[in-house]
């Protein structure tokens, strides 16, 4: 088990955000965290790499307690793509090279540069390599931050709504490249997802949060119309179209 989470509790002053949340992921698995706004999805993701410190509970990364690891030690194994990222006056190449930061001692080596080049080619960003970030579209920027996380060569990849800024084609492109990288490099992916159908299409495991707690967790067998209807408070039906599960609000 690369990441194993047990009994996480988190609150902002008196308001409970997470209550005894637990799950685990294995290498090469894609886990989607699902639930309504305010269910605690993003907060859960941020506790995983110590951006937020949970009040209680244990997070084991490769059998080491995350709260006892330094930020650098965590960054060597776990990459995080925030929901909010800033565009600035860095080139795309530099922004992706920044993913090598945990590995760089004093200056980037030829290996670092070659790795960045490879990732830029795979993510279709090569032609933008020397463009400044503040000249990119939202979709291109989203690809850059994901490319940066891949450059980090993590064992666990945390993604907070990786497709929220993307059009249909880029949603599929980005998730496909993440999935390919995850299977190729045996990376565990934990992603907060809003689009249930994209989640169903790309993930192996699901964690349904409802009002600070885990409502259901497991493989595609937990994604029943009943579970989803209750977790989201909207009645839905789950159908199979071209051998693919789809959720349709009714």
């Amino acid at each position: 088990m690369i990441l194993s989470v047990k009994g996480i509790e988190f609150s902002y002053s008196s308001r409970t955000i997470l209550d005894k949340v637990g799950f685990s992921v294995q290498k090469g698995e894609f886990l989607s965290i699902l639930g309504n706004n305010g269910a605690g999805k993003s907060t859960l993701l941020k506790t995983l790499n110590k951006i937020l410190l949970p009040k209680k509970g244990s997070i084991l990364l490769d059998n080491q307690e995350v709260s006892e690891l330094s930020r650098l030690a965590i960054a060597l194994k776990m990459a995080y793509v925030s929901q909010h990222y800033e565009s600035n006056r860095q080139t795309v190449f530099d922004a992706v090279l920044l993913g090598r930061k945990p590995h760089i001692k004093w200056e980037a080596t030829a290996t670092d540069l070659a790795l960045v080049q490879g990732i830029l080619i795979k993510t279709g960003l090569k032609e933008f390599a020397l463009r400044y970030l503040d000249e990119l579209s939202g979709g291109e920027l989203q690809k850059v931050v994901i490319a940066r996380a891949l450059a980090q060569e993590p064992e666990v990849l945390l993604l907070d709504e990786p497709t929220s800024n993307l059009d249909l084609r880029n949603q599929i492109d980005v998730l496909r490249s993440i999935l390919t990288a995850a299977k190729e490099k045996n990376i565990a992916v934990v992603a907060v997802m809003h689009d249930l159908n994209l989640a169903l299409r790309f993930s192996d495991k699901f964690l349904l949060l409802q009002n600070t707690r885990v409502f259901a967790a497991g493989g595609s067998e937990v994604m029943t119309a009943e579970n989803i209807s209750q977790a989201y408070g909207v009645s839905v039906s789950v159908e199979r179209v071209q051998n693919q599960m789809v959720v349709i609000p009714s």
Binding site: K46, N49, K50, I51, R71, A75, M78, A79, Y80, V81, S82, H84, Y85, E86, N88, Q90, A95, L98, G99, K101, P102, V145, R148, A149, Q152, L158
Partner: peptide, 9 residues
């Protein structure tokens, strides 16, 4: 690139 991204790095 923002404080959270920096922490992640």
């Amino acid at each position: 690139s923002g404080a959270e991204t920096a922490k992640g790095l």
